[in-house]
Amino acid sequence: MKKTVTMSDIAKKLDVSTVTVSKALADKEGVSDEIRSKIKQLANELGYKYNASSKTLKDGQTYNVGIIIAERFIEVGVSFYWELYKKVADELMKLNYYVLFEILKHDDEHQVTVPKMINDNKVDGVIVLGQVSKSYYNMIKSVPVPVVFMDFYENDINQDFVIVDNFYSMYLLTDYLIEMGHRDIGFVGNKKATSSIQDRYLGYLKALIENDIDIDRCTQWYISDRSNDSANVEFELTSALPTAFVCNCDNTAYVLINKLEKLGYKVPEDVSVVGFDNYLTPVANGVRLTTAEMDMRNMAQTAIDILMKRLSKSKSKRGIKQISCKIILGDSVKRLNGKDDF
């Protein structure tokens, strides 16, 4: 019969006290982040089991974390936020936390309804995935449990946000197109929909400005792919096309590629396309998309680390934490000049 793993077993292997192990697993103060991480990792590897109900009785915590996603972000097909949710949930389970998931309905967001999980005192903290309205944000940041916001931010230094470096990553993607000889470059996305898309649009503009490209000319190929509240909308292409499009996300890039092919254009032979996220299938219609890869696992771990510090009352600076992206070069961009590679 397999021996039950105890706190003492973990303590002996790491040469620390049982009290230290207990504090680390309960996310209490008095343990360094490095030791806490080692203890939790070893506990997970050894299959250590603890009595969650007993812990709850002792410290008043539920050991549940709520995750909230606005309905509009998961309505159509494969969603970036479903993938991000899975990463967050997986990392929370490694820390022996249960996940309560709540979809933020359109009406509840509009009416600024407090989430049921908070009203019923079912969670110790909340992670919000994706942008919410200003009024809903103002409500949710004031609830009596810690809240971490992912993939969007507000002008608020007193809250915790985890985002990717949207601005610089899109700047690099657009600059890559320019290095490949493109100067007529359109943008597909609604810059008013989310802070992420707006930052990507600004990164695109920076690359145009730095390379003395006529912004007014390029704005004729600005195409909105969604409403201001991020609901997907059908979009049409102009009769005169640029040589390249920068898309705010991979999903939009693939929609664009399909539209171009229906009109008789080939990617990248006739029009080059870049996306953002790198979470979908790497090949669409035989095209490997050039894109920016978001490290979702790192995003999830960073958000959870912040939440755990808030729950343990650890002092740390609030504000925006940015996660770097990696540029992935596919075959969706055609070279128009003879310069060296990016």
Rank of each mutant, 00 (worst) to 15 (best):
L25E: 01
V78R: 14
S324D: 14
V126H: 06
D175K: 10
I74N: 04
S8T: 15
M150L: 10
R36A: 09
L241T: 09
R335K: 15
S230R: 04
E179K: 15
Y48S: 01
D341H: 14
Q159M: 07
V65D: 01
L42I: 04
P144K: 04
N258M: 08
Q111F: 12
T6L: 05
G330D: 13
M139F: 02
N166Y: 05
G275Q: 12
D120F: 05
L95T: 09
A253M: 15
G66N: 03
F80E: 05
Y137Q: 00
D270M: 12
V164M: 11
K309G: 07
V143M: 00
K105F: 06
D225H: 09
K141E: 00
V99F: 01
Y254G: 05
M1R: 04
T20E: 00
D305M: 08
L172P: 09
T18Q: 14
N251E: 15
R72G: 03
V143D: 00
I209C: 11
P282H: 13
E109W: 04
M7V: 05
L172M: 09
A11K: 02
A292G: 15
Y137E: 00
A300C: 11
V148A: 01
K12G: 07
L256K: 07
S224E: 15
D305P: 06
K87N: 13
A231Y: 08
V126S: 02
S239F: 10
D160R: 05
R36K: 13
F235Q: 09
V145R: 02
T281M: 11
S230W: 03
S316P: 00
K192D: 07
K87Y: 14
Y254L: 14
K105R: 11
S332T: 12
A231I: 07
L84T: 03
K87T: 12
A26M: 11
V99W: 03
M1W: 04
F161C: 00
G30L: 07
K49W: 02
V233W: 10
I140V: 03
Y222G: 09
C325M: 10
N96P: 04
W82C: 05
T290R: 10
G181M: 11
K326F: 07
L263I: 11
I185G: 08
E234Y: 11
F149G: 00
K23I: 06
V273I: 15
L280Q: 13
T113V: 10
K28Y: 08
T56N: 09
C247L: 12
M93D: 07
I103C: 03
N190S: 06
E91D: 14
S54H: 08
E154A: 01
K334G: 01
K192V: 06
T219N: 15
S195W: 01
S230M: 08
K86S: 10
Q322T: 15
F101K: 00
I118G: 00
N138L: 03
I213H: 10
D175R: 08
D175A: 04
S196I: 02
V19R: 07
L329C: 15
N298A: 11
G181Y: 10
L329F: 13
G264F: 05
G275M: 14
S133A: 00
F152H: 04
I257C: 06
H106N: 06
D331L: 10
G338N: 14
M180G: 08
D165C: 06
D341C: 13
K326N: 13
S239V: 09
G30I: 06
D9L: 03
A300I: 05
V255T: 14
F80S: 01
T219R: 14
S32E: 02
V145G: 05
H110E: 14
N51Y: 06
